[in-house]
Computed example of a mutant assay.
Amino acid sequence: MKNNCELELKRLTGKKYLVFVRRGNTAILASLKLVKKLGYETVLIQDQGGWMTYQQYIRKLKLNELRLKTDYGLVSNIKEKNAALLFNSMAGYFALQDMKLISDFSKKNKLFLINDVSGSIGTEEAKYGDVIVGSFGRWKSLNLEEGAFIAVDKKEYYDFFQDFSVDIDYEKLYKKLSRLKDKLLFFDVVRTKIIHELSDYEVIHRNKLGINVIIKFSSDDEKEKLINYCKENNYEFVECPRYIKVLDNAISIEVKRLEL
Rank of each mutant, 00 (worst) to 15 (best):
A91S: 13
E146W: 10
Y170G: 08
K127T: 03
W139M: 07
L96F: 11
L144A: 12
V152K: 03
I102L: 14
N82S: 13
E80G: 03
Y72H: 13
K79I: 07
G134P: 08
A95V: 03
D116L: 07
S76K: 14
L101D: 07
V133I: 15
A95S: 15
I132P: 09
G147H: 02
N77R: 12
G122M: 05
N143Y: 08
D130P: 08
Y128T: 01
K100W: 03
I132N: 05
A151N: 07
V75W: 02
E146Q: 15
E124R: 10
K140P: 04
S120C: 08
G92L: 04
Y72I: 00
L85D: 02
R138N: 11
Y128M: 05
K155D: 03
D167N: 14
G122D: 04
Y170T: 02
L86H: 08
V117I: 15
K100S: 12
G73N: 03
K108W: 01
V166C: 14
S89Q: 05
F112N: 03
D116Q: 06
D169C: 12
E156H: 11
E124G: 02
G134M: 09
G147N: 04
A148K: 02
D130N: 15
R138V: 04
I150E: 06
D153G: 13
L113D: 07
Y72P: 03
Q97N: 05
